[in-house]
Computed example of a mutant assay.
Amino acid sequence: MSYAIIGFGKIGQALARAFARSGIEVSVATTRDPTSFASDAAAIGPQIVPKTLAEAVKADVIFLAVRFAAHADVAKALPTWQGKTIVDVTNAYGVPPEDLGGLPSAKVVAQAFTGGRVVKGFNHLGAGVLGQDPAVHGGRRVVFLASDDEDAAGEIGDLAEKLGFAPVDLGGLSEGGQLVHGHGKTWGKLIFKDLVKFG
């Protein structure tokens, strides 16, 4: 299984730290030349491999860690996303609900990534918290996952555990996804909830 993070801002780097801590190789890409962020990647660890966007989207699992408005541009990188799992880490806070057509933002992302299996996840924590070691007080920091594809949610749940987190499946994008969905001037009820699972 190969992994990539698209977007290498604060959230992308926080995710990269999680992969590096666990010794799992992950490609990182932006729309910029990889040499422009190679030193930032190297500072996190040797497992973080800068690539072009075209190279990075060859991965099996792709973490979408760009601004919500940029998701459609990333989706154009491939004609179909069949066989790939996209982890939607974006937040649409500030985007008017009417621009989303009344849908949760992850549903809008799913429409753009034709054929891909979309899992909403890792988006409810700020970068500062997400980038920390998820082992906390003898427990593990919770990450919420929502997907209309149970197999994809299970796959990302397994990966979350390898990264040291405690995954909590919220169900489908229209139900559980609403709990970790920001739009307009409102945040979902679980956004910014820093929870720890014990046992």
Rank of each mutant, 00 (worst) to 15 (best):
D148H: 02
D148K: 04
D148F: 05
D148M: 10
D148P: 03
D149Q: 03
D149L: 06
D149V: 07
D149T: 06
D149R: 06
E150D: 12
E150R: 12
E150A: 11
E150Q: 10
D151I: 10
D151M: 11
D151K: 13
D151E: 14
D151H: 14
D151C: 10
D151P: 10
A152K: 02
A152N: 03
A152Q: 14
A152D: 02
A152C: 01
A153V: 07
A153C: 10
A153M: 12
A153D: 00
A153K: 04
A153F: 05
G154I: 03
G154T: 04
E155K: 09
E155I: 10
E155H: 13
E155S: 13
E155Q: 13
I156S: 03
I156V: 01
I156K: 02
I156E: 02
I156F: 06
G157N: 09
G157L: 09
G157T: 02
G157S: 15
G157F: 08
G157Q: 07
D158V: 11
L159G: 00
L159V: 01
L159F: 00
L159Y: 05
A160T: 07
A160S: 00
A160Q: 04
A160D: 04
A160V: 08
A160M: 05
E161M: 09
E161C: 01
E161A: 06
E161D: 04
K162C: 05
K162N: 08
K162L: 05
K162G: 02
K162P: 03
L163H: 03
G164F: 08
G164Y: 03
F165T: 10
F165P: 03
F165N: 03
F165Y: 07
F165G: 00
F165M: 07
A166K: 08
A166R: 00
A166L: 06
A166T: 02
P167G: 05
P167T: 09
P167H: 08
V168P: 10
V168L: 15
V168H: 14
V168M: 13
D169R: 13
D169T: 12
L170P: 12
L170F: 13
L170A: 11
L170R: 10
L170I: 08
L170G: 07
G171H: 08
G171L: 01
G172E: 00
L173Q: 04
L173M: 14
L173K: 07
L173T: 11
S174Y: 09
S174I: 11
S174K: 14
S174A: 15
S174R: 08
S174M: 12
S174Q: 13
E175Q: 14
E175L: 07
G176V: 01
G176I: 05
G176C: 04
G177K: 12
G177I: 04
Q178H: 14
Q178D: 11
L179W: 15
V180I: 08
V180F: 04
H181V: 13
H181G: 13
H181P: 12
H181N: 15
H181Y: 15
H181I: 13
G182T: 11
G182I: 02
G182D: 09
G182V: 06
H183D: 15
H183S: 15
H183C: 15
